[in-house]
Amino acid sequence: MQRETAVRIEHLTKRFGAFTAASDVTLDVAQGEIFGFLGPNGAGKSTTIRILCGLLAPTSGRAVVSGFDVAKEPEKVKASIGYMSQKFSLYDDLTVEENLEFFAGVYGVPADRRAARMQYALDMAELADERTRLTRLLAGGWKQRLALGCAILHEPPVIFLDEPTSGVDPVARRAFWDLINDLSHQGKTVFVTTHYMEEAEYCNRIALMYKGKVIALGTPAALREQLRSDELPEPTMEDVFVRYIEQEDAKA
């Protein structure tokens, strides 16, 4: 099946003064794909995602999201993406319902679709019985799903999730990945960063990022396959990661 490109990144570089946060990143993500960005903290994953969301301007290179250049048409990009940041970023002092209403309003969800979209988000987050609860009183996993619900109210074709599962218990993490899978089945492109190696297996393709560079790119199975040898007949994602980082450090 021929699928359209949802995100195209070409030679993207971002410098903060003398520090290079992202260096010559090039990759394509197809529509409906779950694309994982893996790497240790400070590898440049969040910086790259923020450029793709129009929050940071690239120093050089180009990125196109949903057909719009992020540097030239950031407002159009913003209307066609959903973004969930690393920090929990809903209003703690609003109720579940008020958070949803607010984001539906600022994203301009049409009035006739609003009730249905809010109901969808409430069902997805399993918060239908908690509509009038203050958000600060929700448990971590629920907050996470509410944040995702708020980010996709306007049915964006591309969704960026920056470390969505950090600080959430394993059961809630598993449930969250089920939601990501559902979105992918609906044809949404999901771009997700994580530093949990086992979560790489849930992605269609992954990029390993280290010191601002993409050092490996492919399906989880293919990356593991490359590493298979007599001493290491069943390499894990962690093995893959360690091997690539060692190679990279040896080059330097």
Binding site: L55, K78, A79, V106, G108
Partner: peptide, 8 residues
């Protein structure tokens, strides 16, 4: 940051 990625 969340507001900045909306069309506001």
């Amino acid at each position: 940051e969340q507001l900045m990625v909306t069309p506001i």
